[in-house]
């Protein structure tokens, strides 16, 4: 939680800093990406990466700050909402990605909105050892109620993989998410190259 607050504060500081830049140079094109998002993501003409402006969430719209600019985003049943049903489910200042088409009147229309999962998730709390996996594999996936997911690319997968493994390349999760089991209680075991 403390980490989140820190991020929030940093985000606000960045907004203030960027806002003063905008005042000094009003002709600058609207920013598509917040400084905090730049480490891992790249924006383009029709994608923005930023944080939700507190209190802006409604059932059909939200505002996204990219530091120097606040984007007014409309969404409707045509929009793909990943992991939520209304922007009101999302907390203030949550980091989001919006793929949009311009809608005029200073609004953009969201084709897709996805949010970044929280930093509470610590991978190390969810590890499984090789011997544990070997034990799980003694039963069939149906019997043991599990799925082994190879998160590497197709060429690595066909060369060699664990028994019963399903291939879902990590960077194409959205494309291949239907390969995940219907039952959300199924134990999912993912692996890739490992820490080297």
């Amino acid at each position: 939680m403390r980490q989140l607050e820190k991020r929030g504060l940093l985000g606000r500081a960045a907004v203030l800093a960027a806002a003063s830049v905008v005042l000094a140079a009003p002709a600058m094109a609207a920013s598509h990406i917040a400084p905090n998002c730049k480490g891992c993501h790249q924006a383009d003409e029709e994608t923005i990466w930023g944080t939700i402006v507190p209190g802006s969430q409604t059932d059909s719209s939200l505002e996204v700050s990219t530091g120097g600019h606040v984007w007014k985003v409309r969404y409707d049943r045509e929009s793909t909402l990943e992991g939520f049903t209304s922007a009101r489910d999302l907390r203030d200042e949550k980091a989001v990605m919006v793929a949009f088409t311009p809608a005029g009147d200073g609004w953009v229309h969201a084709e897709a909105i996805s949010y970044k999962p929280s930093y509470h998730f610590h991978t190390m709390d969810h590890v499984v050892t090789i011997s544990e996996v070997a034990q799980i594999l003694e039963k069939s996936p149906e019997e043991g109620h599990y799925m082994i997911v190879d998160a590497r690319g197709y060429d690595n997968f066909i060369e060699g993989h664990l028994p019963n493994a399903i291939n879902i390349p990590y960077y194409r999760l959205l494309e291949f998410k239907d390969r995940l089991p219907a039952d959300k209680r199924t134990k999912i075991i993912a692996y890739c190259r490992g820490f080297t």
Partner: peptide, 19 residues
């Protein structure tokens, strides 16, 4: 993390050691 938090699978594990 995404499989657990975005897609809602209850028990998601990572085999750290790799292939």
């Amino acid at each position: 993390r995404v499989v657990k938090e975005v897609y809602g699978y209850e028990d998601v594990r990572y085999m750290v050691a790799g292939h």
